[in-house]
Design a protein around this nucleic acid. Structure first.
Lengths: 336, 336
DNA sequence: TTGAAAGCGCTAACAG
DNA sequence: CTGTTAGCGCTTTCAA
């Protein structure tokens, strides 16, 4: 008697609704939507039309419960404010979307514990796979991830498939450029040496420097634009006519300090950076640096992950990308 | 007879497994895990212990099917390589995680169509809500989102709750600083004027300039570090002793161009930027600029969204944050 | 080619 | 306080 036709708020149409409206079974509707099973052409078309009219959208959660696959992947990075995170994330998200995947992005603040929590959360969400840029080269999460596919980016964590740049090559390239310019006293400023990607850069540089008796000096653990005292001293000593900085952030710091002490770059001091972050191009003078193919690396990471999801088993490989030097304004021939 | 005990690969323990192992009903197990319903203390503890031992983890997909809530939110931005995206995303992701939410991040490449697709994908994934940094001030997605909670960031899209900075105030602050320094001829370089956040900056600046007869010149649609010809001409004309640039990226461009033409900054030309991107601090000279409280804005956006999810209905408000000027090295008193 | 029906893992009435 | 049970929306055998 009462409320003959008060409906609940207009809910999203469900597959059942579609099936009913189309006058077919639930199964057929499902087949039509997923282009799976075998279904008559006209029937499929009909169902699709009805679905369209009803504004039907799959409920991915329900589908995931049933199939065990969510169509979501995770991206875990140590620090989003790292200058080359944006283009990396952009490429990954884009590539993932092209393949119908969405991306959970997390930052671990460079902390192993948070890294664990972040990955744990992703696993709880049943992501199909994870692209992981670890804080360091340690496998801090072995226990958490059991059987979920993971691609490691930039680092070398034993047991995981990895995508990296050839950092050794980068170090060499930088130094060879300097040598070709006639420099014989080349200093090296390194970042934190606890990750392989940093050690490789330095190894490449020092190896290339062997022919001139090795680096004039090596300072480790420089980190960002604000320089440590040891770095400043090294610059001020003027023992080197050129400096290889293992990261652009460091190079910018050295550049600033050089300017502050009235040292002309590149006339009196040549500087090479590493990473080719956006701003290296806009510095004054613009920074000569090593560029890695971030987009390609991101794409390869996603593709490798998707391959794993599709059951490809060729497991433990590493893909290493060549880097190249981009010569700008901070390097010049050594002055007599 | 055959294969008496060949098991499928060790699957993740399910709630049923926990219940069985603990010798309780499915419901009780659920109650224990979720701290919902009413359950005896010792029983809850017991179940929790068993769950722990079995390494039980909730299946969030299944839960979502049942509850209709996924615990995931979406973040949609026009461009991840925008200099202030990283800190924004970081703050949002962090805040979300504090509250148990994960974040799907998407970039729309500044394109309305991709924006629609991105949002559509999020809706399909049943995100509980979306933080949306629109390409412009248009409501391009009204039809897609029906009833899902959305917070708009930085833009003014009619009908949505918004979190913004006081851009008008920023423009004023910048100009007042210049006026206080004695400048009477102040030029203005604007970015694309199709978004309100840009128009506001310019409005604030020109209003503050009224007392000295308005801006010396206004150039629109400058965009990035590489300057358009019109901007260069304006700088070269030297009609102004100071320039307000409505974005740091533009300011850096002007700075570079000034240097190129041998103009001393700040002695011969003062420059104020807007945004306080990371690099404004590292420019030489370091850029005087307008800073907005990005972290606070991000946090407010997430909190506002979560409030909406919890059914708070106070709908259509806008939260506007004060900005402030950070004076560095590109501004100085006008020279006689 | 199509449909009926059995769940995926979980939550939430409702009983007891 | 605890257990039984009915689904959430979907996929997928299995039979017809």
């Amino acid at each position: 008697m009462a409320d003959p036709d008060i409906r609940t708020p207009p809910k999203r149409a469900t597959l059942k609704d579609v099936a009913k409206a189309a006058g077919v079974s639930l199964a057929s509707a499902s087949y039509a939507i997923n282009r799976t099973g075998s279904l008559g052409e006209e029937m499929r078309a009909h169902v699709l039309k009805i679905a369209e009219e009803l504004g039907y959208r799959q409920n991915l959660s329900a589908r995931a419960t049933r199939t065990g696959r969510t169509g979501a992947i995770g991206l875990v990075v140590p620090d989003m404010t790292n200058p080359f995170f944006p283009s990396l994330a952009q490429a990954i998200v884009h590539r993932a979307r092209q393949n119908g995947y969405s991306v959970f992005v997390t930052d671990t603040a460079g902390d192993q514990q948070q890294e664990g929590e972040a990955i744990r959360q992703l696993v709880d969400r049943n992501v199909d796979g994870i692209v992981w840029f670890p804080v360091n080269d340690e496998n801090s999460i072995a226990k958490l991830v059991a059987d979920i596919p993971i691609i490691v980016l930039d680092r070398s964590v034993p047991g995981f498939e990895a995508v990296q740049a050839d950092y050794v090559q980068g170090g060499s390239l930088a130094v060879e450029h300097l040598l070709a310019l006639g420099h014989r006293n080349v200093g090296v400023v390194a970042g934190p040496m606890d990750v392989r990607s940093m050690r490789d850069r330095i190894d490449g540089a020092t190896a290339a420097l062997a022919s001139v008796g090795g680096p004039t000096f090596v300072v480790e653990n420089a980190f960002a634009v604000e320089l440590e005292g040891t770095v400043k001293e090294a610059v001020e000593a003027r023992s080197a006519t050129a400096i290889f900085c293992a990261a652009d952030l460091i190079a910018v710091g050295v550049l600033r300090h050089a300017r502050k002490m009235g040292l002309a770059v590149p006339e009196e001091l040549s500087i090479v950076g590493f990473d080719d972050i956006a701003w290296s191009e806009y510095c004054t003078p613009a920074l000569t640096t090593i560029e890695m193919p971030v987009d390609e690396m991101a794409i390869e990471a996603v593709d490798a992950l998707l391959r794993k999801l599709d059951g490809e088993q060729d497991g433990n490989r590493r893909v290493i990308f060549n880097v190249k030097i981009v010569v700008r304004e901070t390097t010049a021939a050594v002055s007599a």
